[in-house]
Structure formats: C-alpha cells, structure tokens
Design a binder for these strands. Structure first.
Lengths: 186, 186
DNA sequence: CGATACACGTGACTC
DNA sequence: TGAGTCACGTGTATC
C-alpha cells in the first residue's frame, strides 16, 4: 500500500529522532520504576547513583545506535534486492536469500560456458539452397588443416576463430573468401 | 581488483538452538521461564484481567514467534553468503549487500562480454624487434579495408575477428599469413 | 569495569 | 478489535 518508491536507487534519506541524544534532559519521564526515586537532593547527588544512571543512559543510547545502524543495513539490502520494495523484514531476508541463490546459479552457468571447455560448438549460420555447410579437417602429424564452407551470415570467420582460440589452437594460416556476394551477402 | 575467487562452495551448516521453540505448553502455564525474583506476587486476578493477560500473552508469544522466524532468516542468509560465519547481524547484512553487488557485477560483465559494444579495443600482442605492429585502414565508400601486421602471439586474428564482429562489421574477405615462423612463432 | 551484542516483554501503530 | 509489525528500554552474557 503506502510502499513508496519502488526500485529505490540511492536513498540517503537521513532521519533524525526528535529526542535530543546528547543532553541528559530526556531522563526520568515516568518509566524509571524499580529504582528508588532520586534527585531530592539536587545539589550533592551521590556519585554512585548518577554514575549508574549515566551508564544506563549510555546503554540505552548504544542500543538505539545499534538498532539504527542495523536498520540502515536493512535499507541497504532492500536497495540491492529487486522486487522487495514493500515487504517486511522477514520477507526481505527471504527474498535476499533467494536472490543470492539466483545470482549464484546464473554466474555458475554463465562462467561454465566461458573459458573452460575443450570442446567448442560452432553455429555456422543458416543453410540455404545455394550454400551447403561443409567442414573438412585433415590431420598432418600434430597439425590440422580445417576447411570450412558456409553462408556468410552471422560472422562465420569470427566464430571459427573464436572457436579455435577457445580450443587454444595456434593459427598459422587462414584464408577466407566470399564467393557469391550478390546472393548470400546482404 | 575484484578477485573474488575462492568460492567456498557448499557449507550447509545447520544450527539448531538448544531452547525448544515448539510452543506446546504455553497454554495456561506461565510459571516457567526466567523466574524473575521480584515478582510482586499478584494474587488471583478477575476473569477480565485474566483475559487481558491471556491476550497479552498471545501478543508476547506472537512477538517471540516473529523474532524466532526472523532469526531463522538470518541463519539462512548466513548460509548463502560466504565468509561471514562468525560476525554479528549488522556485519552479516553488510556483507550480504557487498556479496550481492559482487555477484551482480560479475553477472553483468559475464553476460555483457557478448553482444553489446560499438567501440572495441584490440590488444595486438607484444611488440618486438622483429615485428612492429601496424594497422592500416583505407575507406572505400562505405567499405573499409584493414591491413594489420603484428606478432603471432596471443591469437591476433581471432582478436581482430572478434573485434570486427563486436563492431558488427561484415567481413567480405580476409587473409592471414605467418611470415617468419622460425623467429616470432614458437 | 566498560563495551558490545542479543533476546525479551511491552507500547504504539496499522489494516 | 484482533492479528501483524516495529521501535523502544532493559536484562543479561561474553570478552
């Protein structure tokens, strides 16, 4: 519903609490039960009491700071996970986990198709009536002579060269010609 | 820079809390847990109060359930983000954000290594005394004739072809020769 | 003893 | 009006 701004993208929104944090004026509203009521003697306040109170205040402020910091992180997380601009914290965490797994999988399958393989698949463009695809390989000792004939669509030489590079083959000589440009080359 | 590396791969560490989370005995028994020693010893409350108490108990239990659920999510997040098996919640969230950004960037540069750019940089291998790198481009109408001379290291033809493909240039003719194999080609 | 982090119960707010 | 979520102050454990 309210759910403002989807997608976020930069949100250095800074919110300050109205309560003044530095001074001690925010003390003793009414919730200081359990402790004996203090400050009758305004002048010579026992150091012990004051110190204890001060410490408690320090504690509560530290806790507030921690909470605030943690919420910042929540906002940051919300900003990097897509499609979660409206849910609550639990759902945000769950979606973050799902998103991370998604990204992981994507990375895995992307870089598994990258520089890993020995066997390389080369798509050689569409066959047509005028040009049959033909691949001819002749081995001479450790060297190979490859002769490829295909249509000139979709950059066949580039693909072939890339395939050769991926196979870590050293190219000593290469020749390419476009024979029937009026028909197969646009 | 980035060099994420080390992956870690799988660490489905499953941690269970020692405290029994199943809320079975929380129906009308509130005498367990935390045995606060100052318990002002409230005597029997009227039914109304009891109902209020029951409601409050429902509230407190709902809150406890929510907290528990949220912590589960935290554990789940910890399980999918590497290298954070010991930090606190805030650091966990921060690391999760960093990790997501890392993964995003990785995915981007992995899948943008394919069909994207217009301007292409080609590294042409190391120069040496015997082979000066030379690039000659002659424009004829809309066509370009490119003559490249370089050392035969690091697959120059493949790189050139890839660059041409990335620029979406149509190659009509290509020729490559390795002239001084005994010197520059190992 | 201070610093840090977490869980807890409770008030306040929403739909 | 009840179910859900959040922020708050506090108690408590670890270092």
């Amino acid at each position: 519903m309210l759910a403002p701004e989807l997608h976020t993208y930069l949100f250095t929104c800074r919110i300050t609490k109205p309560s003044s944090p530095s001074s001690d004026s925010a003390a003793s509203d009414q919730s200081d039960s359990s402790d004996s009521q203090l400050v009758v003697a305004h002048t010579k306040r026992p150091a012990k009491k004051k110190k204890g109170k001060n410490l408690a205040m320090n504690h509560v402020e530290a806790e507030r700071l921690r909470r605030e910091n943690l919420n910042k992180r929540f906002y940051a997380l919300r900003s990097v996970v897509p499609n979660v601009s409206k849910m609550d914290k639990a759902s945000l965490l769950a979606d973050a986990v799902c998103y991370i797994n998604e990204l992981k999988q994507k990375v895995d399958e992307l870089e598994a198709g990258g520089p890993k393989l020995k066997k390389v698949k080369v798509e050689m463009g569409a066959k047509n009536t005028y040009n049959k695809n033909k691949v001819d390989v002749k081995m001479v000792g450790e060297d190979a002579m490859i002769r490829v004939q295909s249509a000139n669509t979709d950059m066949p030489t580039s693909k072939l060269m890339s395939a050769l590079r991926k196979m870590e083959a050293v190219v000593h000589h290469a020749s390419m010609s476009c024979v029937v440009c009026s028909i197969c080359c646009r």
